[in-house]
């Protein structure tokens, strides 16, 4: 059977790995790496430092009732307005202070006049300072969230045309030049108290 033999030989010459699917494999790998690669985004607590004051210039006066003082020592003990407290009390106390609207004579007159001041010891670990600051931030975030959800401030003043499920949602929907109306209505005044001079060691 010469015909069959010929055919076999011919077939053997043609044997090759099919390469047509290589491009697909490459595509799959490419997509796999695209999906799994995460470029780590920097996250953190955003703050704005107070601008430098001239030597003679005094810091702007703040009424005692508008100032909400938080002191954190090196052991992580917290003094809120002179009373011993704990870190997780800060959040609710901040909300109370900011949303007082002149009701309680010891607390703030209005949200935009309210100032939260955080002061630390020289030896306070950074971790505890961030925790305290975080609690203050979360207090403000809770306030902003409720404004975003209802579209109005706690006094009934209309701030937004529509409502959002959260403040975060509202923020992401903002154009870069657009003003953040919630923060305009309730500014976040956080003061990082200057360390006492001559407080060394």
């Amino acid at each position: 059977m010469p015909g069959l033999l010929d055919k076999r030989r011919e077939g053997r010459d043609d044997v090759e790995i099919p390469t047509a699917s290589m491009a697909d494999i490459a595509f799959l790998l490419l997509i796999f790496f695209l999906v799994t690669t995460t470029i780590n985004v920097d996250t953190g607590i955003g703050m704005t430092l107070p601008p430098k004051l001239d030597q003679e210039q005094q810091p702007p006066p703040v009424k005692e009732r508008n100032l909400f003082k938080i002191l954190v020592n090196s052991q992580g003990d917290v003094l809120i307005e002179g009373e011993l407290a704990s870190l997780n009390q800060i959040r609710d106390r901040v909300k109370e202070q900011v949303l007082n609207y002149g009701e309680n004579p010891d607390l703030s007159e209005s949200p935009d006049k309210s100032v939260v001041s955080i002061k630390t010891d020289a030896q306070t670990p950074y971790r505890i300072y961030v925790q305290a600051l975080d609690e203050v931030m979360m207090g403000y975030r809770d306030i902003y969230d409720s404004v975003a959800r209802s579209g109005q401030t706690q006094t009934g003043e209309r701030v937004l045309e529509q409502t959002y499920p959260s403040y975060q949602e509202y923020r992401t929907g903002l154009e870069p030049e657009e003003e953040d109306k919630i923060r305009e209505a309730i500014p976040r005044n956080i003061s990082i108290a200057e360390p006492d001079l001559g407080d060394e060691g």
Binding site: G44, T120, A122, P125, P195
Partner: peptide, 25 residues
Amino acid sequence: SQMKIVNEVQQELREAGTLRINYSS
């Protein structure tokens, strides 16, 4: 880290006028 050095750096940042900061966490 202790707040002493953080405060020192922050005072320097104020001098430089770089007021926008972010506590990376």
